[in-house]
């Protein structure tokens, strides 16, 4: 029992602290998280699920191959392995990246494996699943076909791109 004008006993405070911690643990367990790679392509900011991006490569020269469609700028070799490179801007409504610039994300999901050229990587972040929202039906532009969700990140809405949808587009 608390006496009038006296602060709660330390035992009571400790109980409250522990209770708070248990609640916090429960919240942390329930709140799943997802790692995302936030990247810039043209004027837009987009994300891929982190589990699909195996490496972020810089300084790799893309070897041009004749007769490829515009979304395939060529190939790179990574420690002796040859990988294709997709220019993601082709599918996001922007112009292709300039030769020699940008980074390449090595994306792998199921049987699909390719480099994806982007302008810059802004962040690799852990976000709560609750930050994922269904894509707006009003979302316009070429990116709409690639988006699986939208990330509400501190007021900014960032399209989360689906590698499966990209794979379908490039293998058609």
């Amino acid at each position: 029992m608390n006496l009038p004008g006296r602060s709660p006993a330390s035992e009571q405070l400790l109980e409250e602290v522990k209770l708070y911690q248990r609640r916090k643990d429960v919240v942390d367990v329930d709140e799943g998280r997802i790692k995302v790679v936030l990247f810039r392509a043209g004027a837009g900011l987009y994300a891929f699920p982190g589990e699909t991006i195996k490496e972020i490569l810089s300084g790799h020269e893309i070897a041009w191959v004749p007769n490829l469609p515009a979304f395939l700028p060529g190939l790179i070799h990574i420690r002796g392995d040859i990988e294709s490179v997709i220019d993601i801007r082709y599918f996001l409504g922007g112009e292709g990246t300039q030769p020699g610039g940008g980074l390449v994300l090595l994306a792998v999901k199921g049987d699909f494996r390719s480099g994806i050229r982007v302008d810059a990587v802004e962040d690799v972040a852990d976000i709560p699943l609750s930050a994922l929202k269904p894509p707006l039906s009003t979302l316009g532009g070429a990116a709409r076909d690639l988006v699986s969700a939208e990330i509400d990140l501190g007021g900014s809405v960032i399209p989360l791109l689906d590698l499966d949808k990209l794979a379908v587009k490039v293998t058609l």
Partner: peptide, 25 residues
Amino acid sequence: PFPPLIEPFALRKGLWGVLPRGRQT
């Protein structure tokens, strides 16, 4: 061999393989 995404386009023009040599392809 060419990566699967590129191989169909490459084979059409007789390009059949890739030799990585240092930084050169």
